[in-house]
Amino acid sequence: MLCEKCGKKEATFYYKENVNGVEKSYTLCSDCAAEMQKNGVISGTSMGADPFGQLQKLFSEDKLFGSLFNTGLKQPEARETPKCPLCGSTFAVLAKNGKVGCPGCYEVFEAELIPSIRRIHGRSTHTGKTPARFREQNERKQKIAAMEKELKDSIASENYERAAELRDQLRNLRGNDAQ
């Protein structure tokens, strides 16, 4: 998880305070924590001797994670979003629970979720294993792109016979895609 203040370094401190019923929490790297402590924004004693343990708690407690959706730091204004068509959740519900309602929520509320996701993982794009149906799609996309390039080259070099072959093959491939 990245520091919510500088957004660059790994957060190792979690600080929470409750003043007259008003709760504030910060997830910070050691430098920003030291700076905020120096400026008197957060107190030294509450940092605790066990900051990492507190950060662990952050991951396990829904409410705390929910608060991450609401930090207001560089997050886009919540749009007048419709309810998720599958589960009926609104972004306000997601922010309260700290968890999404269904797989479809990630598409509906993508813009609102991205800043929090980036803060947790330090990045926001998946690399790694994919389900078979996406592997096949990706392979087809790559094949189409390669053939389109070859078609362009064939036309440029006036190899119309090859271009016709490629055009027919592409039509077939795109036909499969449309299905």
């Binding site: 994670f65 968890k99 999404v100 797989p103 990630y106 996701i117 998946h126 790694g128 994919t130």
Partner: peptide
């Protein structure tokens, strides 16, 4: 989804 990978209850 291709952006977020395997979609889970908790982000």
């Amino acid at each position: 989804n291709e952006k977020f990978g395997y979609l889970t209850h908790c982000p």
